[in-house]
Design a protein around this nucleic acid. Sequence first.
DNA 1: CTGAAAGCGCTTACAG
DNA 2: CTGAAAGCGCTTACAG
Lengths: 335, 335
Amino acid sequence: MRSNVTMRDIANKLGVSSVTVSKALNDKDGVSEELKEKIKLLAEEMGYRFNTHAKSIKDGLSYNLGIVIPERFTGTTQSFYLQFYQMLTKILDGYHYSGILYILGQEDEDQLILPRIYNEKKVDGFIILGQIGNEYVKEIQKIDSPVIFLDFYTDQNEIDSVLTDNFFGGYEITNYLVENGHKKIAYVGNIYATSSIQDRFLGYYKSLLEHRIELRQDYIIYDRDERGKYIDIVFPDDMPTAFVCNNDEIAYNLINNLQKNGYQVPEDCSVVGFDNSIFAALTEPLLTTVEVNIKEMSKAAVKIIMEKLHNPNEKYGRTLINGKIIHRNSVKKLS
Amino acid sequence: MRSNVTMRDIANKLGVSSVTVSKALNDKDGVSEELKEKIKLLAEEMGYRFNTHAKSIKDGLSYNLGIVIPERFTGTTQSFYLQFYQMLTKILDGYHYSGILYILGQEDEDQLILPRIYNEKKVDGFIILGQIGNEYVKEIQKIDSPVIFLDFYTDQNEIDSVLTDNFFGGYEITNYLVENGHKKIAYVGNIYATSSIQDRFLGYYKSLLEHRIELRQDYIIYDRDERGKYIDIVFPDDMPTAFVCNNDEIAYNLINNLQKNGYQVPEDCSVVGFDNSIFAALTEPLLTTVEVNIKEMSKAAVKIIMEKLHNPNEKYGRTLINGKIIHRNSVKKLS
DNA sequence: CTGAAAGCGCTTACAG
DNA sequence: CTGAAAGCGCTTACAG
């Protein structure tokens, strides 16, 4: 029962032309209200479905956008990007666009093989979600469709990107600790490892500066080596009252570690994280953390790429979106 | 620099017809090898990209498949389905198909609103990933495109589905414990809560039967009420030496619980789980568990839907795929 | 307000 | 081996 109802079928039944049906179904001028209603009703009744391909072939647009996630981000820890995808498609819907999720295999990334959906003109542009190799960035910049990078930035190339404001997030969460009476605040992370760890640290530092709290070298606690491998955390002799962790996983490890050493959280030590990932839900007590604002970032990314669709040559640069603090139970107010 | 190279452009440059170019690019007969090579080379050079829409409009196929995931499975715990999607698209690639991930909002599910990609003929069929409401199942069964259900089954309707063999998995993992010398084996789960918990339990029971081990009612340990809400686990007076948990999250909770009560895992008690989810990586020691065979399930699902594309009326029924045991450190061999 | 004609980029069936 | 003609389902620009 493959339905192949076309506009012509509707037109024939009504004794009008397919042009009129097209106008009616698209709510365009040039059809009487009465006829328009009649056409819409009949279309519904006959189970008519619009054939996007016919439109696509006319105006050279697929009304699909490729959303690319490198496969290394699809492991068990990373449902994060799936939530991004969900939000992106919801927003694209308002533009009458659909999203096509394309998971970029490591091999294709290494060999600079572009997504097949590009070569088959199934998409009008790309949103790249997460860090990809620099060579691939260059390659995808060359294509004749707009591209925007989401949650990833590189200064090697001039790219348009939408990012969470790591600096501001570090600043705000530290402010929050200060407001709760903390002065002995440590930062947990290797500040040479990645730019997001670094930026979050600098936000932490700015908060200290503003509140005239000295930056202590023994309060910068390393959690990994420069290649990213986690190392054992060493506590300073003079224990801090609060820890700003560069992500939730580290916060999770830190809390377990503190508890094994007889410290209570948050009674003895407050701990905050970043990301609001699964790990923030596994700590006991539940973790106060900074959540990436998926909705606003998605909105911004879609808005920019839609504009790029019409102005391919305009540059949009970096767009920073603030995260938001999720208040839970891992911070104690000091009196 | 929007490239709009068409077959005609290539044809004109070479002084041949677009029919010949079409044949050459599609590796069809009726063009000399020499000319074919020349055409392919020039196409490459001119940056030609195939326009799927033109083909689609001819043969009424979009060469896309909708992969639908209900949004409640996109939370932080569920990267599982993203891995499925990745595998599915990899396999679809071999059929020259692309996947379109469609996340079904709760509201749309309740109101029985079909995906827009269906109404716009952007897909030729659907793979439904995970449990959806019965009314929605009925609704989507009505459409004139093939549908297959993956990792979900209902006996309310006659549906074609691909499932992991929970029964066999329960059987195998219990056999494994028996092989390791265990006789006092408990099952953790409410056997009235879901059919997968039930089937896994029955597999466990079959293994006991085969090995002439008595099924003890006090060794069926409830982990949740019938509405699925987790409850505190109560240990039997006569402690088992091994626990078969109905999923990894429960195993994670159980292990923590055991350790708090002074039992060592696996020295005092062995524990196994199901799913190989993130929780299997968070236990200390790492959890031995049964992994869903994503690859074989995906292969089967794609194969069936491709056949349904050509034989819309054939019934395929339920296809069961065995899981596989992932050996880690939570089982002790009893001497 | 309504519609005939032409065209989007490709493929199929046929003729040479 | 090569290509002219027709058509897939829709829309645009124009004529009435």
